[in-house]
Amino acid sequence: MKIETFQDLIDWTRQLHVHLAECFRHCATQQEEARAKWLLEYLADHEARLEHTVARFEQQADPKALHTWVYDYLSHNPIAPHQACSAPYAEMSFDEICQEVFSLHDQATELYRYLAGRAEIPEARDLVDELLKLEEHEAMRLAQQANRARDL
């Protein structure tokens, strides 16, 4: 997806969460390790909720910010999860899944920090800051749940 405006960025974020939810759900059906299977099911539900949150976020965002161009995005490396879910998570351990998921969320927060520092108007900066807060909060929730599951 080509990201030219902040609206494109939000839509890309929403699509990323859709893709991850579908992939996690698909891989959970093939995962043999019980704890990893539970984690994938949890992650699928979590990413589906995030997708809905981001969609509502887009509906409520300032139109001025949404239509602002994102010039610097092209120089930032895009986040590339497994593009076609060929069951990579089904073959990973609990810890490997956690590492991959946290890496993806870290990349998203890094992207938002990068763009917030380059936003030309305050409305766009506020929009990216809100996306950043959402991703940071959700990554923290994921870490807490993963640690609880690890303790079981």
Rank of each mutant, 00 (worst) to 15 (best):
D45W: 04
H46C: 00
E47C: 00
A48S: 10
R49D: 11
L50M: 02
L50Q: 07
E51P: 02
E51K: 12
H52D: 13
V54K: 03
V54C: 04
A55S: 12
A55G: 09
R56V: 02
F57T: 01
P63A: 03
K64C: 11
K64D: 13
L66E: 06
L66H: 07
L66T: 07
H67W: 09
H67D: 11
H67N: 15
T68L: 11
T68P: 03
W69S: 14
W69D: 13
Y71P: 03
D72Y: 09
D72H: 12
Y73W: 15
S75F: 08
S75L: 06
H76M: 04
N77G: 08
N77Q: 14
I79W: 13
I79Y: 12
I79T: 15
A80H: 14
P81T: 12
H82T: 11
H82G: 08
Q83L: 15
A84G: 10
C85V: 08
C85F: 07
S86L: 13
S86F: 04
P88C: 12
P88G: 09
Y89S: 03
A90C: 01
A90P: 02
E91V: 03
M92E: 07
S93W: 08
S93Y: 09
F94A: 06
F94T: 04
F94M: 06
D95H: 14
D95S: 14
E96C: 06
E96P: 04
E96T: 07
E96H: 08
I97P: 10
Q99G: 03
F102M: 12
S103E: 08
L104G: 05
H105R: 08
H105G: 01
D106L: 03
Q107A: 13
Q107K: 13
A108Y: 01
E110Y: 03
L111C: 05
R113E: 04
R113F: 00
R113P: 00
Y114R: 05
G117V: 02
R118D: 03
A119R: 07
A119L: 06
I121W: 07
I121A: 06
E123R: 13
R125I: 00
